[in-house]
């Protein structure tokens, strides 16, 4: 019995397939690997989409589209980049395109993005109910609300960079590859984003409360 933790650790290490192994399994026709990939990335993809789109329903649409695109494309994924980097790039592309698409349709001229639901001509997806109680964000802590509010003050690019760095813990190199900007740009935008966020948060709470 006393070896159980060690055995558990070994099992966890051995039993958990790497991203690369999952992709190989998927390419070999093992569809269960895709299920694991979705499970592994759903929160990351949804977080990124929500922080960018700032609307739960739209973020879920985007996140679903991202995973559908991955399903269609993983068969040709060569593994030159890390799967995570690839997934984030797909999210960024989808978010950018969604914003541009809606801007072209002047949908955000009179309505803020936060208030806009599903586009008229978007496909029907199976979306979660956002009835009272269904939205976990309604129960989120004050600190989470502060973070959401603070991030909302940043422009899209800054928001993405700070999310990728401070929430997803990616390196400047990876962020640059995902956002398609030089490393120096990541560095300067990240600093500006943090400074701006620090100002917003400091106005709302003292640093002691946060730390």
């Amino acid at each position: 019995m006393e070896h159980a933790p060690v055995i558990g650790l070994i099992w966890a290490t051995v039993g958990r397939a790497t991203d690369r192994e999952l992709v190989a399994q998927f390419q070999g026709g093992d569809a269960s690997a895709y299920s694991e990939i979705v499970h592994r990335y759903q929160n990351r993809v949804f977080t990124l989409a929500l922080r960018w789109m700032r609307d739960h329903a739209v973020a879920e649409e985007v996140a679903q589209d991202v995973f559908i695109a991955l399903f269609r494309s993983l068969g040709t994924f060569r593994g030159d980049a890390k799967l995570s980097t690839w997934v984030y790039r797909v999210v960024v592309n989808h978010c950018k395109n969604r914003i541009q698409y809606r801007r072209r349709r002047h949908m955000d001229r009179h309505e803020p993005l936060e208030g806009v639901g599903v586009d008229d001509d978007s496909p029907r997806r199976q979306l979660a109910s956002h009835a009272p109680g269904a939205d976990a964000s309604r129960h989120r802590s004050e600190a989470e609300q502060l973070v959401a509010d603070g991030l909302a003050q940043l422009d899209e690019e800054q928001r993405m960079i700070i999310v990728l760095r401070d929430i997803e813990d990616l390196s400047y190199e990876e962020i640059g590859a995902i956002m398609d900007v030089p490393r120096g740009t990541v560095k300067s935008r990240l600093h500006r984003a943090r400074t701006q966020l620090a100002t917003v948060l400091s106005r709302r709470i003292g640093a002691e409360d946060v730390l």
Binding site: V45, F46, A63, A134
Partner: peptide, 8 residues
């Protein structure tokens, strides 16, 4: 506090 869970 930045991470958000995907909807149920």
């Amino acid at each position: 506090h930045g991470r958000v869970e995907a909807p149920f």
